[in-house]
Amino acid sequence: MISAEALWETEQPASFLVVAIPDSQARTNIFEIRIPYLLSFLSYNSFTARVEGLNELEKAAIARYGPGEYIPPVAINFYAFRIMVLAGLLMVLLAILAVAYKQPEARPGFLKVMLWAPILPYLAGTTGWIMAEVGRWPWIVYGLLRIEDAISPNVPASSIVFSLVVLTVLYAVLSVLAFRLAVKYGTQEATSGRVAEAY
């Protein structure tokens, strides 16, 4: 979680970083835009709480689990988390507007925005999963099993690449077909009375 906040050094009180460019080699951020006190509040419900940084957490992990690397890729986590939250907030906002407007279907501007809104859940879901899976590194079961120890030794990398390529291509083709079918049915004139036979 702290990698999602790109907080390298322990801070008290901790600032929330709206934008950051992390440098994983130097273990610090090259550029930051901060909101003071906010991260303490978000983490511990107190504006003066102490929030541990990545460097301190890694020392604790080395003491507990032995030598090694324990910090997941910070840039990926940081931006994935923010995109996810932004997409989520936008969805909530659009939902509130749809309920608050008296006749949302009569507002062409709102409808145009809503036309693009279905991207938001995909965005939120995908970045959320990216953050969950990238953030768990190096553990596959936290504290008990590392990813490098859980890899099947009998499955060569070539097989994995093969399956990744095959499934990606298959899904890409099916997605295009699904989209074209959706457009076809979405742009039809509404036919009255025909329900089951519509397919």
Binding site: S152, N154, V155, S159, F162, S163, V166, L167
Partner: peptide, 9 residues
């Protein structure tokens, strides 16, 4: 499942 990886794919 690991042994029969390609067959499963």
């Amino acid at each position: 499942f690991s042994g029969a990886y390609l067959a499963l794919i």
